[in-house]
Structures are given as C-alpha cells and as structure tokens.
C-alpha cells in the first residue's frame, strides 16, 4: 500500500464538498438525500484511511456502525418523503413550507 494516506483524505474532502454542494443547490428532496449519502461515504473513506494509517481496526468498526445508521436513516427519510408526497404531491423542498407561511 504505497499510496500516501493524504491522497485518500483529499479525495474524501472533495467527495464531502460535492455532497454538501448538492445538498445546498438541489431542490428535489430525493437528490438531497443522495447527497447526504455521499457525505456519509466521504466520512467512511476517511475512517478507513485513518484506520489503515494508525493500524487500528476501530475505524473500520466505526464504518460498520455508520453503514447501519445510514440504512436506518434512509428508511425513515424515504418514509417521510412518501408521507409528504401523499399529502402535498410534491418532492421539492421549497414547496414544503407550510409551517413557515
């Protein structure tokens, strides 16, 4: 493994930036969710990289738990999206402003 860990960390930072950018500029709730997954994956990549650099398996265990939490989050989040869609027939975040108006 001769690739420096910093390369992976820079890649992870870039992926996190792409996810954050998508979360900020997209309107579709489903795509915002996907960007959230991208950010979680960036965090996972840094966990694994630090795990290798420090020779500690704990980072990989953390990724395991992050995967479980991400799965639970997607299930609940998509349930909320379906429930909102059933009431409002929209999946655009700007249209769901009933509590502000």
């Amino acid at each position: 493994m001769s690739i420096p860990g910093s390369w992976y960390l820079i890649l992870s930072a870039l992926l996190f930036g792409i996810g954050a950018l998508g979360l900020l500029i997209r309107r579709n709730v489903l795509i915002m969710f996907m960007c959230l997954e991208l950010m979680l994956n960036a965090a996972n990549l840094s966990f694994v990289t630090f795990s290798r650099m420090l020779g500690d398996i704990a980072g990989q265990s953390a990724v395991f738990f992050v995967l479980v939490v991400a799965a639970a989050e997607v299930v609940v989040g998509l349930g909320i999206v379906v429930a909102i869609f059933r009431r409002r027939a929209t999946a655009v975040a700007d249209d769901i402003s009933g509590m502000r108006d």
Binding site: M1, S2, P4, G5, S6, F50, M53, L54, G55
Partner: peptide
C-alpha cells in the same frame, strides 16, 4: 501532517 501514524503501511 494528515495523521499521527505512518503513511506507508505495508
């Protein structure tokens, strides 16, 4: 310095 551990673990 990216981390406190070695960068090239084989």
């Amino acid at each position: 310095g990216w981390a406190v551990g070695p960068h090239h673990v084989t």
